[in-house]
């Protein structure tokens, strides 16, 4: 099974942090339109994603694994897309679905399971 390198984990962490911050910004900018339940859900997703990101930075420091260049390039594209998407979403459900998908990628990366990473990225792209 192909593995991620330490350098790639760091880049993934940077991208995941941008995605998490985009979700946080969505909540701050739309707080008046969100119900309490929606706000709580997005807030929890945001926190969980941030927890995953900090773990990725640690893993980047302690782990060194083989290259998965293709996934890296794809997730960079996804990051750029995600940042734009949060600004264009019209329903809260879309935001929540997307944020959940992002969190799944984070979980897959933490488990260093490249098959899960590929699968979760595919889900996000479809």
């Amino acid at each position: 099974m192909a593995k991620l390198t330490s350098e790639q984990l760091k880049i993934l962490a940077d991208n995941m942090l941008r995605m998490a911050n985009a979700l946080g910004d969505y909540r701050y900018e739309n707080i008046d339109q969100l119900s309490k339940a929606e706000n709580d859900t997005i807030k929890a997703l945001h926190e969980q994603t941030l927890n995953s990101v900090t773990e990725l930075y640690t893993k980047s420091t302690v782990l060194s694994i083989d290259d998965v260049q293709e996934n890296l390039e794809r997730i960079t594209i996804i990051t750029a897309k995600t940042q734009k998407l949060y600004k264009s979403f019209t329903t809260v459900q879309n935001v929540i679905d997307r944020a959940t998908s992002v969190l799944k990628i984070a979980a897959a990366v933490i488990s260093l399971d490249t098959e899960k990473i590929t699968e979760s990225i595919k889900n996000l792209l479809t």
């Binding site: 942090l17 946080g24 420091t61």
Partner: peptide, 12 residues
Amino acid sequence: ANLSGKLNVQKS
């Protein structure tokens, strides 16, 4: 990058 990155997460 990594330690400072963790601090960026902490700020968020």
